[in-house]
């Protein structure tokens, strides 16, 4: 711009004066372009989290607009109540159990789909469907199949002597049932994640190994596994985080019951907030969950350095 001199002849008709946007440097355009996302994050995440922190320092009754400042007593209360530690324990149990089942089944499904030639589209369509289908459909169908009167799975299970009454009403077995049902829905995530990695391994690696006489097992051990190891670590981490925060599937199946047999942290937070009307305490639990998540998230970004692992 500095080289344009005043003595230049008038520009040709095709040249109009630089438009205003030309004057903005590239970096401004870059920031403008991601503003919508940052705005959404602010409205839907940053504000609520700040709000939750503030609310957790107050005694708030949902039907009463008056907030009373109570300092840390919501947290003190939360840490003292038995149901908090019980929920924490059950939450961790649910997280580990369901992540483990999803991981094993998910990777198995991915390997099978990747190896199948003719029928793979049927299997993969089923996997994709289970990923895309709303959770409520899964729970309604399983509630039906476990129905003590009309349920086909209930009939099978009780005739084998595995359980007698409504499975989800069984204090000892409800948690296991919730783990299995939620894994039916979420193992697909592990499958698709793994399958995408498997499909991105070039065939020539396997061809080269076959030329050298490698067996299928050796090919898996020396080519497939090293190539998907990183993705598997990521997916286990993501699933664990997601399952620790899983609210919908448990609430739909058992509402945390029977008793508190399936009450995990998210269920407890919901109950405290909307059933006990202790909005401040509910927010305190939400803040604690958020801190756990945040620590996990930072750990994830540190350990995985995702910007380098992305393959296009």
């Amino acid at each position: 711009m500095a080289t344009d001199t005043a003595g230049d002849p008038p520009p040709h008709d095709s040249v109009s004066s630089p438009r205003w946007h030309r004057m903005l440097p590239e970096s401004v355009w870059g920031w403008l372009s991601i503003t919508p996302v940052l705005l959404l994050y602010t409205i839907v995440a940053l504000c609520p989290i700040t709000f939750a922190v503030v609310a957790s320092f107050h005694d708030v009754h949902l039907l009463n607009p008056e907030w009373t400042f109570v300092g840390l007593s919501n947290y003190a209360e939360v840490f003292q109540i038995d149901r908090f530690w019980g929920s924490m324990w059950r939450g961790v149990l649910f997280m580990i159990g369901s992540t483990l089942v999803q991981f094993v089944v998910g990777v198995w499904m991915a390997l099978v789909i990747d190896s199948l030639s003719r029928t793979s589209r049927l299997v993969s369509t089923l996997v994709f469907t289970s990923y895309l289908v709303p959770t409520i459909v899964v729970t309604v169908v399983f509630e039906f199949m476990l129905d003590p009167y009309d349920g086909v799975v209930h009939a099978a299970g009780s005739s084998l002597g595995l359980w007698n009454n409504f499975l989800l009403g069984n204090t000892d077995l409800a948690m296991a049932a919730v783990v299995v049902i939620s894994s039916w829905k979420f193992a697909a995530f592990v499958s698709l994640f793994t399958l995408a990695q498997l499909r991105s391994i070039p065939d020539r690696f396997y061809e080269a190994a076959q030329v050298c006489g490698a067996t299928r097992w050796e090919q898996f051990r020396d080519i497939t596994f090293p190539r998907i190891r990183g993705a598997l670590a990521v997916v286990v981490f993501l699933r664990a985080i997601f399952m620790f925060n899983k609210y919908d599937v448990i609430w739909q199946l058992t509402e945390g019951g029977p008793g508190s047999a399936t009450t995990t942290m998210p269920i407890l937070a919901f109950k405290e907030t909307f059933q006990m009307n202790a909005y401040g305490r509910g927010n305190a639990i939400a803040v604690i969950m958020f801190l756990v998540l945040f620590a996990g998230g930072v750990l994830y970004l540190r350990a995985m350095n995702p910007s380098q692992e992305v393959h296009t």
Binding site: T3, T5, D8, P9, S14, V15, S16, P18, R19, R22
Partner: peptide
């Protein structure tokens, strides 16, 4: 960064590509 580009006697050094 520095210098001039001219098409005929019209200086285009900072003219946008479109023009």
């Amino acid at each position: 960064t520095n210098g001039q580009i001219r098409f005929g006697d019209r200086t285009v050094t900072s003219a946008p590509v479109q023009q």
